[in-house]
Design a protein around this nucleic acid. Structure first.
Lengths: 200, 200
DNA sequence: CTGAATCTGTCACACAGTGCCAGACTGGTA
DNA sequence: TACCAGTCTGGCACTGTGTGACAGATTCAG
């Protein structure tokens, strides 16, 4: 039943990952060349040498080719937050978790700048990204509730959710400023400025 | 050139508004009956007695039928913020502006609950809403910059943007909690709890 | 009445996304 | 080796959103 039995790390899974990686590489190249909207799934498929139908079996939507990692990043952020010592305040822990996430990203600053700019240029892409980021909030809430002390106060969930949402909003603001500046400003300092303004 | 000349308030414009209102009324009824995704533009058009093509001339996208007012609400929020006395802190002014916006909404609590629930149920609708709300942030930034004191510090824009984004995030959190509770909790108190948690 | 601008429906089209089906490939088993 | 079951793949047909082009009807100004 389990096809991975006897296979080193699962052959099927590995080939699937390889194909996925090739799709992302090819699609990203086309997106950056012609723009996200102007590139069709048909073009991506034929460029790789596979059918449109099979392409949709690897990525359910066109946006997922760009944002596919996003769900995993959310999980990584949650794990990073959970790994922070219990003594830290929510803001301290969230800051450290966000920093850990950014440091773990495999993109070079140039690529990150290009991708983020593309995200700003395409409305549908931006919309999907915001939607996925919304889900990050849900992932972070349980740990923040724990840090706030699990009281019976029904407002604890509201407080935790607000903290998660605002931390992500500050992160987004800092990233945004970084992109607008062409990658020249210090993103970490921008984040601290954002938090200071909100708490001020 | 100006067709409104000699016309009481512009006839063309008035009939257009009337048709728009009928479209919204009919579409909303169908959306609430069958769900947003399950209702097609074709069905809405034939229900009203117009062609699908003309329907698209009134609303560029299906989402706009639900979220069309959203852009106007953003402008109303900006105006409300600008109308607040200069002595108020950004948080005070933002809170008052948001309250003014909510009080001005024409929906009954029941309708508001239904619409908001629909927004939560449909991913594409939610994505578009988040995108439009993002634009609200841009509208609010100039006034907040003014309140922070227009220094030459380039980080002022970051601080202002963070404040706007977090205020909207707290509003969203409060609304969300209100919807989850089925409209029983006090939204205003939830907002204050959210802000208190963030400013910690 | 006449001309110009606007509104309307119809047709055609591009593209995302999905269900179905038949053939090819893969790995394990008799 | 031959067989069998699970999976992958491409092709086809279809739905639904959104857009461009065109022709006829309506409306308003002179």
């Amino acid at each position: 039943m389990d096809l991975r039995a006897g296979n080193p790390a699962g052959l099927r899974e590995r080939t699937r990952r390889a194909v996925q990686a090739e799709i992302v590489a090819t699609a990203m190249r086309l997106f950056l060349e012609r723009g996200f909207e102007a590139t069709t799934m048909e073009q991506i498929a034929s460029e790789i040498g596979m059918s449109r139908r099979s392409l949709f079996r690897y990525f359910g939507t066109k946006e997922d080719i760009v944002l596919g990692d996003h769900a995993e990043h959310g999980e990584a952020l949650r794990a990073a937050l959970e790994a922070r010592p219990a003594g830290e305040t929510p803001w301290e822990a969230l800051r450290a978790a966000l920093k850990a996430l950014f440091d773990s990203l495999p993109y070079s600053p140039e690529d990150f700048l290009k991708i983020t700019s593309m995200l700003h240029a395409s409305p549908s892409l931006r919309a999907r990204q915001l939607e996925k980021r919304q889900k990050w909030t849900d992932l972070l809430v349980p740990d923040i509730v724990r840090r706030l002390g699990a009281t019976t106060d029904p407002m604890t969930a509201v407080r935790a959710r607000a903290l998660a949402a605002c931390a992500l909003a500050c992160s987004e603001t800092a990233t945004d400023a970084w992109v607008r500046s062409g990658g020249t400003i210090d993103m970490e300092r921008a984040f601290d400025e954002a938090v200071a303004a909100v708490r001020g």
